[in-house]
């Protein structure tokens, strides 16, 4: 990837010599390999893409897109003009920001820690265990966590009371609510998230460690100068992807923790839209909300990708 720029400079001139068809013929083996994958995206992803039009219609399933009335930006206006839209958007952004701050680096840290563990059995066990929470649904996780944080029975609050402090109702206090979301997300996603980094660490050339040792580098230095640099490309890629999720709050998580006491800090786009759908079939409206979120996501990914290219040469494309 580092060499991308250098090689890229030579490519266009060759390309322009050959022209479109010439390129296809010259690289035919490569393009043949691409066919199954691209065909999949074309048929199953782009095929149904015309459904985005539903966002601009008052869609009735039985009438289909051809038969439903066009309403322009009506559903977008409805979303943006809602008195709660600003606060809901703000909550979504803040929670996502916290999650990127805490939950994004955590798997990397876990990966580094696992890499330093030399008891192979323990390492394997720890890895297997760490990814278990990924499989438990938020309903179950939230039940356990609410019990754990209960002001009357939860171990944390019993400890606080032993220390002579007032118990804290973490889940119902606006001050702590976002913290609860971030920590529970961390707990659930850290192990699963670290898999991709663990795979990258195995790609590190062992001779690099030996060379570093020769130079008298300690373990910290080896982590900082060998392991971490090897992870930079994948970290960049993951970060670009993560930046696209800023508006895609996790409905299952927030919904299971949210109470009216914490609406002001925890009500996010998906939970609010869910409440809007209680009354009516809202197919067009939800499509419009999704489209809005996805456009923002896409722009963010493009922007992050652009910045990543400018700063460190690693990027998605």
């Amino acid at each position: 990837m580092k060499t991308e720029k250098k090689k890229g400079a030579a490519a266009p001139s060759r390309k322009s010599h050959r022209g479109f068809l010439g390129n296809l013929v010259y690289y035919k083996e490569y393009y043949l390999m691409l066919i199954p994958g691209l065909l999949f995206f074309l048929v199953f992803c782009y095929g149904p893409m015309y459904g985005l039009a539903i966002a601009f219609q008052d869609y009735y399933p039985l009438k289909g897109i051809g038969g439903s009335a066009w309403v322009g930006f009506k559903h977008f206006k409805k979303l943006f003009s809602d008195p709660f839209f600003v606060s809901v958007l703000k909550n979504t952004l803040i929670i996502s920001f916290y999650k990127i701050l805490v939950c994004f680096p955590a798997p990397i840290l876990l990966c580094l820690a696992l890499n330093e563990i030399r008891h192979l059995r323990f390492k394997k066990l720890a890895q297997s265990v760490s990814y278990l929470p990924h499989f438990i649904s938020w309903v179950v996780v939230s039940g356990i966590i609410i019990e754990f944080l209960s002001p009357s029975r939860g171990p944390i609050n019993i400890l606080l009371q032993e220390l002579g402090l007032e118990p804290i109702f973490f889940v119902a206090e606006p001050r702590y609510f976002r913290g609860v979301l971030v920590i529970s997300d961390l707990w659930k996603s850290i192990g699963w998230g670290s898999i991709v980094y663990l795979a990258a660490v195995t790609g590190v050339d062992p001779t690099l460690y030996e060379a570093a040792e020769m130079d008298g580098a300690g373990r910290v230095k080896k982590i900082l100068h060998v392991t971490l640099p090897a992870l930079v490309p994948i970290i960049t890629v993951m970060f670009i992807m993560e930046s696209g999720k800023v508006l895609n709050d996790s409905f299952e998580q927030v919904y299971n923790f949210l109470t009216p006491s914490t609406y002001q800090v925890g009500d996010v786009i998906s939970t609010f839209v869910y409440r809007m759908g209680i009354q009516k079939m809202q197919y067009s409206f939800t499509t419009a909300v999704d489209l809005f979120k996805n456009i923002v996501s896409f722009i963010l990914v493009m922007a992050t990708n652009y910045m990543a290219r400018k700063t460190n040469d690693y990027a998605l494309w």
Binding site: L42, Y46, G47, P48, M49, Y50, G64, I65, G66, G67
Partner: peptide
């Protein structure tokens, strides 16, 4: 997109003509 829209719109017609 256009090629698919072509085929999908024909599908659409089939299904949407009905209730229309």
């Amino acid at each position: 997109i256009t090629s698919l829209a072509g085929c999908s719109s024909s599908n659409k017609e089939e299904t949407t003509k009905a209730p229309a």
